[in-house]
Design a protein around this nucleic acid. Structure first.
Lengths: 111, 111
DNA sequence: TTGCGTTATACTTTTCAAAACATAACGAAA
DNA sequence: TTTCGTTATGTTTTGAAAAGTATAACGCAA
């Protein structure tokens, strides 16, 4: 084709009631929470404020009918957060979709 | 699969130098310019200000090496805007990509 | 040569989401 | 029973993008 050097890019996400509930950035946040056991640590890693991260988690949990993240405050280490099995399942499926989508972009992007 | 009612949605766009240069909304604007021969009319149809539409057109034209839209002021009707053949080609190809992408979303979205 | 409707562009104001700030609640461990 | 680091949440500030305002330039047609 004759069109100059461009790159095809894009994003996918899950919606519930027309509202974006899970996408690229949020999944990364959830993964980091899962690995670190901490919302704060995950937020630091992603260079966002704790508040922002917490708001996102809260929004995600409210979007789905069951929580993807459960958390506790106080105690050893000050508190803890972790993914529920349901949460793990959801992000697993989303990442599969993402893989397929990346393949789509590659196959259709400019050569 | 066991995940509750969600909808897979997404967007694709073309980038030049890491910068978004053509996507869903802009293509619609270009199409309407093409049909109406007028930036103003296209803007009205899409409920945006003339300024916003013009800025977008300007940005698009600068992104690509050749303009997709050419326009003139003055004369009968006050002025005119139209797609170059290059512009028509670009939006044609983009719309094909979009079709494929919609198919992708359908095939992978929640049943 | 004036009026008209559009393109073109600069400047100002508004809006609203993101960031920053503040503070309470919690429970293990010392 | 105090300290500590985290979760939880409300309030305030900021800044950038969007919208709005203003005005010039243009050329056909009457």
């Amino acid at each position: 084709m004759s069109i100059p050097p461009f790159k095809l890019n894009g994003r996918i996400w899950l919606e519930i009631d027309e509202e974006k509930v899970l996408g690229h950035g949020r999944v990364e946040l959830l993964e980091r929470i899962h690995e670190s056991g901490s919302i704060r640590q995950a937020a630091l890693q992603m260079k966002m404020s704790y508040k922002q991260a917490w708001d996102l988690v809260n929004h995600i949990n409210n979007g789905f009918k069951q929580p993807l993240v459960i958390s506790k405050r106080g105690g050893k280490g000050g508190g803890i957060a972790l993914l529920t099995p349901f949460g793990q399942e959801v992000i697993g499926e989303f990442k599969e979709l993402q893989q397929k989508f990346f393949r789509f972009l590659d196959e259709n992007g400019k050569k």
